[in-house]
């Protein structure tokens, strides 16, 4: 049952990372870590039923696809706002929203 403990540790690290980081990339890595913890559990616990390999392949392919999409989004976001810092991005989004609103009012 060691991998259960490993998964729990990974979860704890992931949550800690989620809390302390403002960089989008680090937030993303933390979320990945949490997801991997659960995947690890699934795969290891499914092995006795003979489903471990099947799940592993499935999990890998889904994970890769999702990561690709998220990374693409991250690149887009940091290009648009010029930063990867979450609080700065929020501040900029807010400015944009206000600009939009004032434009609507002007019309």
């Amino acid at each position: 049952m060691d991998f259960v403990i490993l998964a729990l540790v990974m979860l704890a690290i992931g949550i800690y990372g989620l809390l302390t980081n403002r960089q989008l990339l680090k937030v993303f890595i933390s979320i990945e870590l949490i997801a991997t913890a659960a995947t690890l559990n699934f795969v290891m616990l499914a092995s006795p039923q003979g489903l471990g390999e099947a799940l592993l392949v499935l999990a890998f392919s889904v994970d890769t696809a999702v990561s690709a999409v998220i990374l693409a989004l991250l690149v887009l976001v940091s290009k648009r706002y010029g930063t990867g810092d979450l609080s700065k991005i929020i501040a900029k989004m807010q400015e944009n929203a206000e600009k939009e609103e004032s434009e609507v009012e002007a019309q």
């Binding site: 729990l8 949550i15 989620l18 949490i34 659960a38 995947t39 616990l45 006795p48």
Partner: peptide, 26 residues
């Protein structure tokens, strides 16, 4: 943002719990 963070943590908890349940019961 607060809601999303809470929801991510919630899903992490649930997923981890489900994985253990799956391991025990198949």
């Amino acid at each position: 943002l607060k809601y999303l963070v809470m929801v991510i943590i919630a899903s992490a908890f649930v997923l981890l719990g489900l994985s253990i349940v799956y391991g025990i019961t198949g």
